[in-house]
Simulated scan of single mutants.
Amino acid sequence: MPRIAVIEDDRAMNQLHYEMLAQIEDVELHQAFNTAEARALLASTEFDLLVLDIELEPGGPSPKGGISLLSEYGSTTPVIIVTGMPEENLHEIALDLKAFEFVRKPVSRVDFLNKVRHALAFRDIYKSKRSDDSWPTYLEVDPSRKPQLIWRGKQIYLSNTELCIVYLLAETVGKTVEYEKFFDALKTGQSERVVQQHISNLRKAFVEVDPGFDRIMTNPMKGYFWKADAN
């Protein structure tokens, strides 16, 4: 079960983010309302995602405590920055410090949740690749920690849904992923035809960087599988 920390000093805003995140099934949510609480929370357990405000405790001893938290945790944990601060270069600063995504206030629920799901999917891929020797050769997680993958040294630009589908295929190399399993990644439009369209788009994306790409295979009437590397 993914564990998410919401770190925001405005209690109403913190609760709003919490309630939006609660719409995602099977997540464990925690809240912190200042830098000190955040440090204690993050020291107590490992999180899969941080939803972090830059400006914590305005006028206090650590008005931009979110920056220090991002610099400490951004390289090891996906962080989504949510801020209303107007500085033009803040976006670049946050990304330089390894922020995974950047969301401006007021928050769009659809955009926010899409980026959260994208971050969680990336985290799943990162964990699977790190611990599973069967992960496909030549398929890498983008070292800049962006929510993308690299195939044979070249970046593949994928949607959140396509990223989830690749993850499903890559974690079970050589084994068929049946249509019903893909439906969990689709959320909407759960039909075999929609899965087929996504698979077609994925193949095109990989072929664009590798004309000889042939790893995503069809198991007729059942689903798809990632072809195992040749011995």
Score class of each variant (00 low, 15 high):
59 G>K: 15
214 D>W: 03
53 D>N: 12
127 K>D: 11
179 Y>N: 08
115 K>W: 06
94 A>E: 07
220 P>T: 04
33 F>Q: 09
21 L>T: 09
29 L>T: 04
99 A>M: 05
126 Y>D: 10
149 L>E: 02
126 Y>K: 08
25 E>H: 09
147 P>I: 06
110 V>M: 03
213 F>Y: 13
209 V>I: 15
217 M>C: 10
100 F>L: 10
102 F>I: 04
74 G>R: 03
102 F>D: 04
33 F>S: 15
44 S>W: 04
95 L>G: 02
59 G>V: 14
160 N>A: 12
47 F>W: 00
41 L>E: 15
72 E>H: 08
112 F>L: 01
119 A>W: 07
1 M>D: 08
50 L>F: 13
208 E>H: 11
106 P>N: 06
170 A>I: 00
99 A>R: 01
153 G>K: 05
32 A>G: 02
105 K>Q: 13
47 F>V: 00
59 G>M: 14
81 I>D: 02
193 R>C: 05
32 A>H: 00
107 V>P: 03
98 K>H: 13
198 H>F: 12
64 K>F: 14
144 S>L: 09
51 V>F: 09
105 K>T: 11
164 C>W: 03
48 D>R: 00
160 N>G: 09
17 H>I: 09
203 R>I: 14
138 Y>D: 12
112 F>P: 00
114 N>V: 06
231 N>S: 10
146 K>Y: 08
77 T>W: 02
215 R>L: 02
44 S>T: 11
195 V>M: 02
168 L>T: 01
97 L>F: 12
192 E>N: 15
162 E>G: 06
31 Q>A: 12
85 M>D: 12
22 A>F: 07
116 V>Q: 04
145 R>H: 10
74 G>Q: 08
123 R>W: 10
136 P>L: 03
53 D>C: 11
57 E>N: 10
172 T>H: 15
199 I>K: 00
44 S>K: 12
28 E>C: 01
208 E>A: 15
122 F>H: 08
204 K>H: 01
194 V>M: 14
82 V>N: 06
191 S>Y: 06
3 R>T: 15
175 K>S: 13
161 T>F: 04
218 T>W: 03
88 E>R: 11
93 I>R: 04
135 W>A: 01
220 P>R: 10
86 P>F: 05
220 P>W: 04
132 D>T: 07
82 V>D: 07
137 T>G: 02
164 C>V: 03
69 L>R: 00
148 Q>E: 09
2 P>K: 03
35 T>Y: 14
196 Q>N: 13
100 F>N: 09
187 K>A: 09
214 D>P: 01
182 F>G: 11
36 A>T: 15
11 R>D: 13
168 L>D: 08
105 K>V: 10
131 S>Q: 03
66 G>C: 05
223 G>A: 10
13 M>H: 12
94 A>S: 15
141 V>H: 07
76 T>I: 11
40 A>T: 14
143 P>Y: 05
225 F>I: 02
65 G>K: 06
26 D>L: 09
74 G>C: 04
79 V>S: 00
29 L>C: 05
177 V>D: 03
112 F>T: 00
49 L>K: 05
140 E>V: 01
63 P>E: 13
64 K>A: 07
184 D>Q: 11
224 Y>I: 02
19 E>A: 13
23 Q>L: 06
195 V>K: 02
72 E>I: 05
177 V>R: 06
73 Y>E: 05
154 K>S: 13
105 K>F: 14
148 Q>C: 07
182 F>L: 10
197 Q>M: 13
126 Y>S: 11
24 I>M: 12
93 I>W: 02
214 D>S: 13
101 E>K: 12
